[in-house]
């Protein structure tokens, strides 16, 4: 089984804090990490390859430093890392991103299974997985929380829904997006780390993957970010004071006014 995992390098938004005074993002100490959901996608790919036989390619579109993240992916069990990097990709929305990734997948000679994270913690759109599946004309399901079994031409998996879950039979080749509940990602092994150190990350640019520059980056993106701003501070805000009893009485009064 040929498996491709799509990984995005993202700023660690977990460490991003809003400065309550200026209401701006404090960026100190915010490093670039592997998108947390993609760690689960990778783990699933690596364990499927171990169970059913196959290879795992870690694929990312991003700036040159994303090669570090791909090395980490190799440390966690991927067989190879491929980076698609070109200044022409800058400003890509999800439509241009899926165009680029689809071309990259085709350049790699397709796959039996592509796994993406449910969403990236920076852009937060959850649109790349489904869009990529469409471009490659693959069977697709999102928010997979368990892969039960892989058969010759299909796999059985569980999909999270708002009101519960569905059990699915998905024809291969397919693209899935996964949620965190699917597995516990492994810590890189010593052998993995050594592989990563030796590994050479293949890097392709727009021309290498046969991409039409008019469809890349900002030029190929129908959406434009018109404005970025800090979330609004809420209106009335108060800390209750006094003894515990006084606070409870005041709170109870406020609660009764609301209900």
């Amino acid at each position: 089984m040929k498996i491709i995992i799509c990984l995005k390098q993202v700023p660690d938004t977990r460490n991003v804090r809003l400065d309550p005074k200026t209401n701006t993002m404090s960026r100190e100490g915010v490093e670039s990490i592997m998108n947390p959901y993609d760690r689960h996608a990778l783990e699933e790919g690596v364990s499927l390859a171990a169970q059913y036989g196959g290879t795992v390619t870690a694929l990312s579109m991003g700036p040159p430093q994303a090669a570090e993240m791909l090395k980490e992916a190799i440390a966690c069990g991927a067989d190879q890392g491929v980076l698609i990097s070109d200044r022409a990709f800058a400003g890509a929305d999800t439509l241009a991103t899926t165009y680029t990734l689809a071309n990259a997948v085709l350049a790699l000679g397709a796959a039996d299974l592509i796994i993406c994270g449910k969403q990236a913690i920076d852009g937060d759109t959850a649109q790349v997985g489904p869009g990529l599946a469409r471009r490659l004309d693959l069977a697709y399901a999102s928010c997979i929380s368990k892969i039960h079994e892989v058969r010759n031409d299909c796999l059985l998996a569980r999909r999270m829904m708002d009101d519960g879950y569905d059990e699915l039979e998905i024809t291969l080749p397919a693209l899935l997006t996964v949620v965190r509940e699917i597995n516990e990602p492994r810590i890189p092994s010593l052998k993995g780390k050594m592989n990563a150190r030796k590994a050479v990350i293949k890097t392709f640019n727009a021309a290498d993957i046969g991409a039409d520059t008019a469809l890349l980056g900002l030029a190929g993106s129908p959406t434009r970010v018109a404005r970025v701003f800090a979330p609004e501070v809420r209106g009335e805000r108060a800390m209750l004071e006094g003894t515990v009893i006084e606070q409870v009485k005041e709170l109870a009064a406020k609660l009764e006014a609301i209900i």
């Binding site: 929305d93 999800t94 439509l95 899926t98 937060d124 759109t125 959850a126 649109q127 790349v128 997985g129 489904p130 869009g131 599946a133 469409r134 471009r135 697709y140 399901a141 999102s142 928010c143 999270m160 829904m161 708002d162 993106s221 129908p222 959406t223």
Partner: peptide, 23 residues
């Protein structure tokens, strides 16, 4: 922006070549 909407609407946007704003 439900499980269903976030799953298939991006596919629709891809087919019609439209911009899609999430959530």
């Amino acid at each position: 922006a439900t499980a269903i909407g976030r799953s298939f609407i991006p596919q629709v946007a891809t087919v019609v070549g439209a911009g899609l704003t999430a959530d």
